[in-house]
Amino acid sequence: MNSLITKYYQEFESYQAVWKFKNTIFLFLIISMLIFFSSSICYFYFIKSIAKETQNIILWIMVLAEVFTFYLFYGIEKQRNEIVKEKFRKLYKNDQLSLQQIKKRWLREALAIPNHEYINLIEKIEKYYLTQSNYKGIHLTREKIYNFIFSTDSKNRVLAMFMGLVALFTALLISTGINIENIFAIFQSIHIFKTLLFIGFISICLFGAFYIVKYTIFMTISLLEFIFDNSLNRNKISKRKKELFIAQLLQFAEFPKHRKRIHASLQVSKNLDSDTVE
């Protein structure tokens, strides 16, 4: 299975054929990315020490470099797809094949199973790699990095820890000589509506900051995986390669087609009990 996923990635998803400095689009993409990152660093690092006009110029350079980066990346992707189509159109001796038709035919020949069995194959792939990850040892994976940040399975534990900290803080306040009545007096003096608004605002800010940090890390890891998959890690299996392969199988998966059987039926006249039969 690993060799099949690697082969699929090399044939259809890899940018190895276009990631060359003699390729003009790739060269301009690298330059555009360098301009974007350097202007971003200059804008946020020297924001207090440069004039307002200079800040605006750097900001415009940063925005334009970002736009050109996305546009050139789209150009690189289109260039790769054209190379893939040209290769397989010659191989299959059909100049009218689209990229999706080429992928569909390649998977049909490589897997040698009908497309209505792709769902079963996906389940087997997921079960295989889940079992493999459980016995992978101490190797660092993307899921382990995410779990270091926050695990969805630990919400109840985090909430219990937070409530325990609140109880501990209250107990420490009481132990230092603060009367419990003073604490109740503080709560009684609080305006409920304003307090709820303040707590809601702070909660939204914390919630937004958490997801900004989380998805920034996610995008950074995905970018690094993308770079390694097309350079140092081109012959190894990564989660990104598996996801691309499974996504393609899902796109081509179909339900089994049932043949409709037509049974002969004898129509009985409604006037069967009458004197005449139709």
Rank of each mutant, 00 (worst) to 15 (best):
M1W: 10
T6M: 09
K7M: 06
S14H: 09
S14E: 12
S14G: 09
Q16G: 09
W19A: 12
F21V: 04
I25M: 08
I25E: 03
I30V: 11
I30M: 10
L34F: 09
F36Y: 01
S40G: 05
F44D: 04
F44T: 06
Y45Q: 10
K48G: 08
S49R: 07
A51D: 13
A51K: 09
T54Y: 04
T54Q: 04
N56V: 13
L59D: 06
M62K: 04
F73C: 00
I76A: 04
F88I: 02
D95E: 15
Q96V: 03
S98C: 03
L99S: 11
Q101T: 01
Q101G: 04
Q101D: 05
K103Y: 02
K104A: 05
W106Y: 03
L107D: 02
R108Y: 12
A110I: 10
N120F: 12
I122T: 03
E126N: 08
K127A: 08
Y129F: 02
L130Q: 15
Q132G: 08
S133V: 13
N134T: 07
I138E: 15
H139I: 15
E143T: 14
L159W: 10
L165S: 11
A167I: 03
L168Q: 12
F169N: 09
L172M: 07
S175K: 13
E181Q: 14
I186D: 05
I186A: 03
F187V: 09
I192G: 04
F193T: 12
K194D: 14
I199K: 07
G200P: 04
G200D: 12
I204F: 07
F207N: 14
I212H: 15
V213D: 13
Y215P: 05
I217T: 15
M219W: 15
I221F: 00
F226D: 04
N233D: 15
R234K: 15
S238P: 00
R240Y: 11
K241N: 01
K241I: 00
E243N: 10
I246E: 02
L250R: 07
E254K: 06
E254A: 07
E254F: 08
R261N: 15
H263W: 11
L266A: 12
S269R: 08
K270P: 01
D273G: 05
V277K: 11
